[in-house]
Design a protein around this nucleic acid. Structure first.
Lengths: 237, 237
DNA sequence: CGCGACTTTGAGCATATTCAATAAATGTGG
DNA sequence: CCACATTTATTGAATATGCTCAAAGTCGCG
């Protein structure tokens, strides 16, 4: 269940250095963040943070775990439009006077910091550091969305899946086990494919020794081989 | 050919009211925009504004016409990631310290205002109105990209095409002729389809009397019928 | 141990692509 | 202004990619 952990304390927040508040000089923190009515909330896997169409009165920063942002069609087809990681700000549609454009769900057990829109607006106006960090977050978000549009619009199934794996594991050594807390059907939802298609290619690559996996971790045994395999199978690129 | 029209004059700019400068009180204009070294440039259809990967030293505002932002794969497959309309700001990756993430091409003959990144940064810092307008632009851009991700990831060909047409014509009366300066292959590039698929559905709907079109204009004779046709053909939604 | 959820695998099918040929529209030069 | 060349759009037939439906297998948890 959603559980209020108490009022946030930004001075001691463990992820402050990865958040929109990372640029604020230590000495200015009390000043800038005074009267900031944050609350820290824990949620368990699959719990809901907000729903597409709701009035956006709060934005959120992710302190622990992963969040997925999804959009759905009337008949239930669902698309994951973004995955939120450590320190990222999400749910800020209210800053443009709009309702939430997506639904936010906990992909793992999570800890989030809930930020009232009014306070966030005020802090953005008073702190150039926060303002800049938020701007960069939006621009990076836009770039990521554009990259995803290229994947969904122009790439075939195996290419999309390989891109996803390579991106997911990009900061790790080949041959290292990496958490992948997405189910097969969530990977499918992210890539615009079906569970079966995702499973087939993963199995295939496992047989060929390009990857290894357990239920919720993965290892790219041979990232180069993976790129290769995808390129040749797609007779181009 | 690209042609420099001269230094921009913001006070008399015909699209100022639709740009990021729309919020500035008339009286403050000279102050806020002093030393702003803009230049107005005209380009003809298919001319290039900037290329993916270039250093992003300028952002642009579109004064006349339409621009497409595209991304490409190594083998030439191309995806249109966004279409820029009247008054919109684009090419601002530099604000996040990044290179251009897309290629910008004139979809029609256009007139753009070229804004040096340094000046833009300064103005954003000094004018809350400009700052707010830019923020709203980014959030709206993100929302549009998310909506597009849903289309590309979850919808079938006819649904994507119908969504596109309905969105394109949404501010117009049914039965009104509307400019559509995209070729069939550009529509395909935007929707992640092939020219042939686009052409087939358009022809089909034309035969059924749902739409009419000439080379570069379109008319939704029966928008409701179009929605209907798509829903039933997709046995859901 | 047994239930339920998730995953894998298979077979047939449908959608959209590819390849190919024709038709229509646009632009160019005489 | 017309004839020709070039690009763009339409249509058809065959193919392939990824989906649907179905069944069996695996894992985790009570």
């Amino acid at each position: 269940m959603a559980k209020l952990q108490g009022k946030g304390n930004c001075q001691t927040c463990p992820i402050r250095y990865r958040s929109i508040f990372s640029g604020i000089p230590e000495a200015d923190l009390p000043d800038v963040l005074q009267d900031f009515r944050t609350s820290v909330i824990t949620l368990t896997h699959n719990e809901n943070i907000y729903i597409e169409g709701d009035a956006a009165a709060h934005a959120y920063t992710l302190r622990k775990g992963l969040v997925k942002l999804t959009k759905s069609l009337a008949d239930g087809r669902t698309q994951i439009v973004r995955i939120i990681g450590h320190g990222e700000l999400f749910g800020f549609d209210g800053l443009a006077g709009e309702d939430y454009n997506q639904t936010a769900l906990a992909l793992t057990d999570i800890e989030i910091c809930k930020l009232p829109m009014k306070d966030l607006e005020r802090i953005r106006a008073t702190s150039p550091e926060v303002d800049k960090a938020m701007m960069q977050g939006w621009i990076q978000g836009l770039r990521a969305a554009e990259n995803m549009l290229l994947d969904l619009g122009a790439k075939k199934a195996p290419e999309r899946l390989a891109s996803f794996l390579l991106k997911w594991c990009k900061d790790n050594q080949p041959g290292q086990w990496i958490d992948l807390p997405l189910s097969r059907s969530e990977i499918a939802e992210l890539l615009g494919l079906t569970v079966e298609t995702v499973s087939r290619f993963l199995s295939d690559w496992k047989r060929k020794g390009l990857i290894q996996d357990t239920r919720s971790t993965i290892q790219l045994t041979d990232p180069e081989g993976l790129k290769q395999a995808v390129c040749t199978s797609a007779r181009g690129l």
